[in-house]
């Protein structure tokens, strides 16, 4: 029963394997290059398991100690996970204790698999989802751990490596841009932070930027809602 579910889950996770391994290694090398001990990426990959947020964490650890800002940024950056959860409410119902781990590990990639793929006939959906989540999580931990070890052993010039994070967010932004009909939310997401950056400076613009984005999207709800939903 378990074997069957694992065998059904594995092929769907292969693309995630490549992605998590490459990004995990990059993240592990980056955070150790910025001075973190080799076990730090392993710890965060287990306890946070949210790639974008872990890349942002590298910056947070380098700036001043500010738990409130760290918390608010986590909520804002991971807010999209709220909506994955909403889509999975019915599918994850009645799965008992498994459900706790399934929700804990619901990353963008895991969501895209468990939401889009139907397990084959005779395979339990709960077990299938569990193995997808477990496999994805282990790929991420593996990548981050390897990155942490490489990063603390190798001594090549890592100047500029931090751009991996900029590039990753730019690509996701671009993919969203190509999918959406209405670009105003994306434009708001770029323009308001730039305005806040100019007003408040690099060290304290994030909270005003997040609040102004939420306010703008709330104020523009009527016109946007009409255009977003055809």
């Amino acid at each position: 029963m378990k074997r069957k579910a694992l065998r059904a889950a594995l092929p769907h996770t292969i693309p995630v394997f490549t992605g998590y391994l490459v990004l995990g290694i990059s993240y592990g090398v980056l955070i150790t290059a910025k001075g973190a001990p080799f076990w730090m990426p392993m710890l965060t990959s287990l306890s946070i398991f949210a790639g974008s947020m872990e890349f942002v964490l590298v910056n947070l650890l380098l700036s001043g100690f500010d738990l409130l800002q760290a918390f608010l940024m986590t909520l804002m950056i991971n807010a999209r996970h709220l909506f994955y959860g909403i889509s999975m409410l019915d599918r994850y119902r009645g799965l008992g204790l498994k459900k706790l781990y399934l929700i804990y590990g619901l990353t963008d990639e895991t969501f895209s698999i468990v939401c889009a793929m139907e397990p084959p006939e005779g395979v339990d959906r709960g077990l299938f989802s569990l193995f997808v989540t477990l496999l994805d999580h282990s790929y991420w931990v593996l990548g981050c751990t390897l990155g942490g070890i490489f990063g603390s052993m190798l001594s090549f010039d890592t100047r500029g490596l931090e751009f991996v994070m900029t590039a990753m967010f730019a690509v996701i932004f671009l993919e969203n841009w190509q999918k959406e009909k209405q670009h105003l939310p994306a434009i708001i997401g770029v323009v308001l932070p730039i305005v806040c950056l100019l007003i408040f400076g690099a060290d304290s613009f994030m909270i005003p930027a997040m609040l102004s984005i939420l306010a703008a999207l709330t104020l523009l709800r009527k016109p946007l809602e009409q255009e977003v939903q055809p």
């Binding site: 804002m76 932004f173 997401g189």
Partner: peptide
């Protein structure tokens, strides 16, 4: 869409 714009900035 807005959040990934924010993250690039």
């Amino acid at each position: 869409s807005a959040v990934f714009g924010l993250l690039v900035v």
